[in-house]
Design a protein around this nucleic acid. Structure first.
Ligand SMILES: [Mn+2]
Ligand SMILES: [Mn+2]
Ligand SMILES: [Zn+2]
Ligand SMILES: [Zn+2]
Lengths: 166, 166
DNA sequence: AACGGAATGATACCGAGTCTCAGTAACCAG
DNA sequence: CTGGTTACTGAGACTCGGTATCATTCCGTT
């Protein structure tokens, strides 16, 4: 009912605490980055984040994102050739569907992928260390925009914002 | 039986022709790059290629690889954070298992992945444009090297050449 | 309050990849 | 073979995402 969604604030608080628990210091700068982060939960580049937390130095934003990545609190999306994007990490092993128009990220899991991966590895007598699956899509929202033929509002993207597909 | 393996020469010839057919000009430089390419079929960075074809300019090597990529003659491997690697493309849709020790690339295909991908997309009402799956492994060869011990440098600290896994 | 290590930010730097532009060389008429 | 059109080449400047340096600040503990 209030202006800003309380869940966002809560979410960044939680992340902040998880950082603190893991030995990192609890600074205003990090709080700011985390707040910006959570309000952009749909996927973002570091450069975009920099814009959101303006007085904070670029290097620091990069460092913070790296830290969050190491702690497993954000996911990195390879995005083919385009600049990498990041998204808040739901916990556990999962994969991503990324909209190449607007950058929205959708997590998914619970796939038979591990079986497949193991079969492949067995065939080659190699040991699996990990795998990565990314699905490139046009999201429901962007499809609707396409269909209605009108100019997208806050939803940028004329056509194909990210060159995620080779 | 001559000195150089005939298959490699044949292979680069074939690629050269496929380029010509698609309207590209047939130049000594490209022939050189393709020869280097085929003798490195296990995966390579552009920089490595540059070393192999030394008098050829760096920009040209990049351009050539880009061209081959567009024509679908080579595959690009994202490799997480490490610099992207390329490999000769077997035709058709497939995925890659990459050894994080030596960079060897193993193609595979014929997976139920498309079903999975479609299911995911349907759930989100989005349209699938494509997907990418990469499996990171220690290949059979590298495992043997590990096992045969006599590790001169004593580290079981598994020395990972590529930071492909986050 | 004081200390020590961690965090910050300005800036220099790095490395992959692209662009520019002038010169060169395939290819295709004629 | 010859000449013209156009693609290709290469040196080098440039872009841009990301990191290293280092002096300064400041968190957290004692
Ligand atoms: Mn995620
Ligand atoms: Mn391939
Ligand atoms: Zn979208
Ligand atoms: Zn290997």
């Amino acid at each position: 009912m209030t202006s800003t969604s309380p869940t966002l604030r809560e979410q960044s608080e939680r992340l902040l605490h998880r950082l603190a628990e893991s030995g990192a210091r609890l600074t205003p700068t990090r709080a700011a980055v985390l707040r910006a982060l959570t309000s952009r939960s749909d996927g973002f580049t570091v450069e975009e984040l920099c814009g959101d937390v303006r007085p904070v130095g670029r290097a620091t934003v990069f460092r913070t994102v790296r830290l969050l990545l190491q702690k497993g609190l954000v996911c990195k999306l390879a995005m083919g050739d385009a600049t990498p994007r990041y998204a808040l990490s739901r916990s556990g092993h999962h994969h991503h569907a990324v909209c190449v128009r607007c950058g929205a990220v959708d997590d998914f899991r619970g796939c038979d992928l591990d079986d497949l991966v193991q079969r492949v590895a067995a065939a080659a007598e190699s040991e699996v260390l990990g795998h990565r699956l990314e699905v490139y899509v046009v999201c429901a929202q962007c499809r609707r925009n396409d269909a209605s033929g009108s100019a997208p509002s806050t939803h940028h993207a004329k056509h194909q914002k990210f060159r995620a597909i080779e």
